[in-house]
Lab assay of single mutants.
Amino acid sequence: LAALHAEGPLAGLPVTRSDARVLIFNEWEERKKSEPWLRLDMSDKAIFRRYPHLR
Rank of each mutant, 00 (worst) to 15 (best):
L10M: 10
A6V: 14
A20N: 01
R50V: 09
A46E: 15
V15M: 13
L38F: 15
R49V: 11
R55G: 09
A2M: 07
R50I: 09
K32Q: 09
A11V: 11
K32T: 09
S34L: 15
E27M: 08
G8H: 05
V22R: 12
E35Y: 11
K32P: 02
R49P: 01
P14A: 01
D44Q: 06
K45Y: 12
L13M: 10
P9Q: 07
S34H: 13
P14F: 03
G8D: 05
R21T: 04
L4G: 04
H5V: 05
A6M: 14
F25Y: 15
L38E: 07
L10H: 10
L38S: 08
D41E: 06
T16G: 07
W28T: 01
A11I: 11
L4M: 09
F25E: 04
R17F: 14
V22I: 15
L40S: 02
R21N: 03
Y51I: 00
L10Q: 05
R17L: 15
S18D: 14
G12N: 07
R31P: 02
V15K: 12
L10E: 04
F25P: 00
M42C: 12
E29M: 15
L10V: 05
R49C: 11
A6K: 15
L54D: 00
L4P: 03
S34N: 13
L54R: 00
G12S: 05
A20Y: 01
R49T: 14
P9F: 09
A3C: 15
Y51E: 00
K45M: 13
W37A: 08
L10F: 14
R17I: 15
H53A: 01
M42H: 04
K33S: 10
S34F: 13
S43F: 02
F25M: 10
I24C: 07
T16D: 07
G8W: 06
S43E: 03
Y51T: 00
F48A: 08
D44E: 10
E35A: 07
D41P: 01
Y51Q: 00
L40I: 07
L38R: 09
G8T: 05
W28V: 02
K32E: 03
H53E: 00
R55L: 13
V22Q: 13
K45C: 14
F48K: 06
K32D: 02
K45P: 09
P14N: 01
P36Q: 07
R17Y: 13
S18H: 15
L1H: 13
G8I: 04
R50Q: 08
W28A: 01
D44Y: 09
Y51C: 00
L38A: 14
M42G: 02
P52I: 02
E30A: 13
H5R: 03
E35M: 08
E30G: 09
E35K: 09
V22F: 10
W28S: 01
R49E: 14
F25C: 08
P14W: 01
A20H: 00
L1G: 11
N26H: 14
K45E: 15
